[in-house]
Design a protein around this nucleic acid. Structure first.
Lengths: 168, 168
DNA sequence: TTGTCTGCAAACACTTTGCACTTTT
DNA sequence: AAAAGTGCAAAGTGTTTGCAGACAA
């Protein structure tokens, strides 16, 4: 619960819990707060890790009857959560991967081509460079995405690197 | 005609034309130099821009009879060209986009959410940061990808920004 | 009640594959 | 002649959509 709070150091932006913020978003758009949408935000808010739609769907299916949602609803709700600023979407190996965006600091990723693990890191330098470059090109930067692909320590030592390396 | 040459300042790596390099690659793998593969490399080498498989396929279909290739062959050959180090693949809005990689300097991109144009830029700083971060995480970096999304000058002025903004 | 949402099944876009035939070597 | 490549049609992924019934406001 309130996973985001550890990062919400007084910023107005994170005064609300993800659930509250989502409700506000829905209401502001004349959308409804349904059981399914509630189940999905709750579940997502309860975990920190990156995940994709099918994973979330599978997780929900393990849940007790009644705490579920169909595939289309999961996809639809994830989009809404992105619109609401709760989640950030990135595409890796052909499928969409989501991560928390609400109340979490901006960061980038190291992506292991062996086990497909994502490691987060922050660097103000990156943002600075993006702004500088954008400025030099009359470009209005909105966001950036930096992914450093390589092999993590685990995959280099253990043989657990189930040879996944392929599509970047 | 040796499009890459303008960048090949004496480096051994770019001593060969893309076509030659591809032939070498094919031979080294016991693969054959077929009419289709030749047609595809030639076409790709003749243009500098980013493109996707369907675009290439469409271009080839406009060509005179005999200079064509089927969809599966186009896809198969593009993969081979990536393996051969001629092309670099990136995924944007759900489809694979290719760009020249042979003899071209490392660079990153500004991506316009309006017209979906890609603007290239180079920054040694980015590579430096990637190495530094990777090192700090016991991570062996192989490559990186930085995409700054935003709105280009054209889209900000002209109304030509056909409202494409969506999936990042 | 009214209008949105859900779930189902079907459709999608992009890409890959099985296979009989063709081509390079 | 032998081995690899091609094109076709079909199968795959991951994701989206049309629509009738279900449900929030």
């Amino acid at each position: 619960m309130a996973v985001a709070s550890e990062f919400s150091l007084g910023s107005v932006e994170t005064a609300l819990s993800p659930q509250e913020r989502f409700e506000e978003f829905l209401q502001s758009r004349g959308k409804r707060v349904t059981r399914q949408r509630r189940v999905i935000v709750d579940h997502v808010a309860s975990r920190h890790e990156h995940f994709d739609a099918e994973q979330l769907l599978a997780d929900l299916r393990k849940t007790r009857e009644g705490a579920r949602a169909s595939r289309p609803t999961v996809y639809r709700t994830l989009s809404e959560m992105v619109d609401a600023g709760l989640l950030k979407k990135m595409v890796l190996d052909g499928r969409a991967v989501y991560e928390h965006d609400y109340g979490y600091p901006q960061h980038d990723h190291l992506y292991c081509a062996g086990c497909r693990k994502l490691i987060e890191f922050s660097s103000e330098e990156v943002a600075r460079i993006c702004d500088a470059v954008a400025g030099g090109h009359q470009f209005r930067a909105q966001s950036h995405r930096l992914i450093v692909t390589g092999i993590c320590l685990d995959c280099r030592t253990s043989r657990s690197k189930t040879r996944l390396q392929d599509r970047v």
